[in-house]
Design a protein around this nucleic acid. Structure first.
Lengths: 339, 339
DNA sequence: TTGAAAGCGCTAACAA
DNA sequence: TTGTTAGCGCTTTCAA
């Protein structure tokens, strides 16, 4: 009971300074129960002057859950995921919850470990990217009993709630649009070495529609690197220099497609007459390009927002029987000048 | 002491299943102390089969500190900060620490509240953006005793460790380059309504060099919105349509400047003969543009990495006497084709 | 090599 | 209106 030498202040310190019990400090801090104005003022001024910061670890331990929302992201290198994170984060402001996050770099093993790590914080909820997870990951989430939302994709069987769009339908839709413009010979440019499973689904949807129409994909280039405008530009150059080059190119996302536009602008290649292009995501910067890209608009920010609202309990819970729910935010094909 | 109905497993549950004491489970989990192979195996298999997930809240409460690194960001809407976050996050992988973060939206009051919230997790360290913080924020950080790193800027007095670059020098350096090319009448385009204090410092540095040379800034346009290519494109159009339009434009960052390039490409305005442009940051996507922007390269990812390493204790501690340290990562003027 | 006791800082429940 | 007690799940200390 000697003098406190630690920097960390506890409610006991404030209690001593204010001449009340520690429990009274707790009540004043939380504004619960009845406390006389007199005492409240004494406690508040003691807390302020000593610079008391509550210890949420203790509260969380007591409550058996921490005011945290865990967010798993494939990468921070792609705007798309920082937009989802932004949606979660901004929705959490003023809710008293904090986001904790980790990045998998598109690896299922990393995801498994990361999910375990994040769950050990006893978060109020967890946001996962996509619907493909290892059995162990699924089991860990289920066993934890925390609310889960899987974002981005709805083509598959969610653990509980999925919020996103049909990636397959988005790919098909792009194909149908391009086919309607009369293109028959297609190229595809992707990145991440095929580890982005949503991109794979889009390509599947795209490919099936192309085949059904009797048209063909003459070349698919999927590089190992992350996507970027530079990669898109270089791969477009490579693709167009192949003999038997395609009339139209489908890119796995807007960054790559914008790189394609840049290549054409630099080389004086006419769009869409010499080559047609289509992207995916509808990123804001496309508006500023000299040529408007045809793309599929997705609602990344809103996915984060809706996910957070679900985890906060401001949305309907999953259906009682199946314990599952799918929220299709849809997509919109935006016809630009590139096909 | 009845049967456990909760989903949450504790070491007691594992202990019961393995027929040992809870303390033995703790030892096995952490791999400390001596445990017989026999017992270790029993405990490990019980933990695995029951799906035990440790409760870090309890450990953290006991340890008086949580294995967390708190990160404060002005916004997630700007690539620059997600790159810093990425640097922190990737450096933390395999260190056993998790990033928790929050966004201030460039508001000092939000920052104050956010910092208090984050400190209540008893993190191992905290990363703050820039050197300008309210007295209360500074006091809270100091009182908490956690390690702090301030990133992005080194023009000022750090709380402890600052890692970044001289924003003022970066602005001056750009001005000197443009002056050396013979431009005398300048324009400036910024965003965030002047709330981005690093941008303000760059402009100060730019302005002083321009004045010293006897040249002038004929127009400054600072919009309230966040920066984007679209804003840059529109504001460039506005600036160039003013009578008495400038010969050269300095933008507060690359997104805005890239928008300027797009405007010129679309309108057939020759760069740099009709108008010269310069940006700031050296973002990767610039490489893909048809016209290479003259800009100042900064090391966002590295700032995050260095900040995390400091907080992990893998870098020198601040000087014993002053308790402060400044790490100047510098910047590099990249001469493109725009001035 | 294993176990029992105490306590980290907080809050629910009960008592005064 | 205020205070006391017990305990959240771990780990440190001491004992067996």
């Amino acid at each position: 009971m000697g003098g406190k030498t630690d920097l960390r202040l506890t409610m006991d310190d404030i209690a001593a300074a204010a001449g009340v019990s520690q429990m009274t400090v707790s009540r004043v801090m939380r504004g619960t129960g009845q406390t006389s104005d007199e005492v409240r003022k004494r406690v508040e001024s003691a807390a302020r002057s000593l610079g008391y910061v509550p210890n949420r670890l203790a509260t969380a331990l007591r409550d058996e859950t921490a005011p945290l929302i865990a967010v798993v992201l494939p990468t921070l290198g792609n705007r798309v995921f920082s937009e989802v994170l932004n949606g979660v984060s901004s929705t959490l402001t003023d809710s008293g919850l904090q986001p904790v996050f980790g990045v998998t770099e598109y690896s299922a093993e990393h995801e498994e470990e990361l999910v375990r790590d994040l769950l050990s914080w006893r978060p109020r909820g967890i946001v996962l990217p996509g619907l493909e997870h290892s059995d162990a990951t699924r089991a860990a989430v289920r066993a934890s009993g925390v609310r889960v939302v899987e974002v981005m994709d709805i083509d598959g069987d969610p653990i509980s709630v999925a919020i996103g769009l049909s990636q397959i339908a988005a790919g098909r839709s792009t194909a149908l649009h391009m086919l309607s413009k009369g293109y028959r010979r297609f190229g595809y440019i992707g990145s991440q070495g095929g580890r982005d499973l949503r991109a794979v689904k889009r390509l599947d949807g795209f490919r099936s529609a192309i085949r059904e129409a009797g048209a063909q994909i003459v070349s698919e280039r999927i590089v190992a690197e992350p996507s970027s405008m530079t990669v898109g530009r270089n791969e477009t150059a490579n693709l167009l220099s192949e003999r038997n080059a395609p009339e139209a190119i489908y890119y796995s996302n807007d960054d790559l497609a914008a790189g394609g536009i840049m290549h054409c602008l630099s080389e004086g290649i006419a769009i869409p007459t010499q080559v047609a292009l289509a992207g995916f995501n509808g990123l804001a910067f496309l508006e500023a390009l000299p040529v408007r890209l045809t793309t599929v608009e997705t609602l990344r920010l809103q996915m984060g927002v809706e996910a957070a609202l679900h985890l906060l309990g401001h949305r309907d819970d999953p259906d009682e029987i199946s314990n599952k729910k799918v929220v299709d935010l849809g997509f919109r094909l935006i016809e630009g000048e590139t096909c």
